[in-house]
């Protein structure tokens, strides 16, 4: 019971951060929101007994993708037109 409540809460947080990352005009804030979504997704994968995927998501989704996005923002523009 309690675990399914936590699961639904995490899903809501994930949906909200995903939508927020689409609607931010400041791209750096958008990337940070995407990173939070990846982190919540990691917890959900772990909850679903998939630790392999959770580790990959934490390493690639939450850390490496964000690094590459930040470098790309530095090479281009910070604000979306």
């Amino acid at each position: 019971m309690i675990s399914s409540v936590i699961f639904i809460l995490l899903s809501i947080v994930m949906l909200v951060t995903a939508v927020i990352s689409l609607y931010f005009r400041d791209l750096l804030a958008s990337v940070v929101s995407y990173s939070v979504m990846s982190l919540v997704l990691t917890v959900m994968f772990f909850h679903l007994d998939a630790p392999d995927v959770a580790i990959a998501e934490a390493g690639i989704g939450a850390a490496l993708t964000v690094c590459i996005f930040v470098i790309a923002i530095k090479l281009t523009r910070r604000r979306e037109e």
């Binding site: 630790p51 392999d52 959770a54 580790i55 990959a56 934490a58 390493g59 850390a63 490496l64």
Partner: peptide, 17 residues
């Protein structure tokens, strides 16, 4: 244990950042 080449390599590469 859970993990493997891809996961470990990705975790180590985040240390490069």
């Amino acid at each position: 244990s859970p993990g493997g080449g891809f996961q470990g390599g990705a975790v180590m590469a985040s240390a490069t950042a």
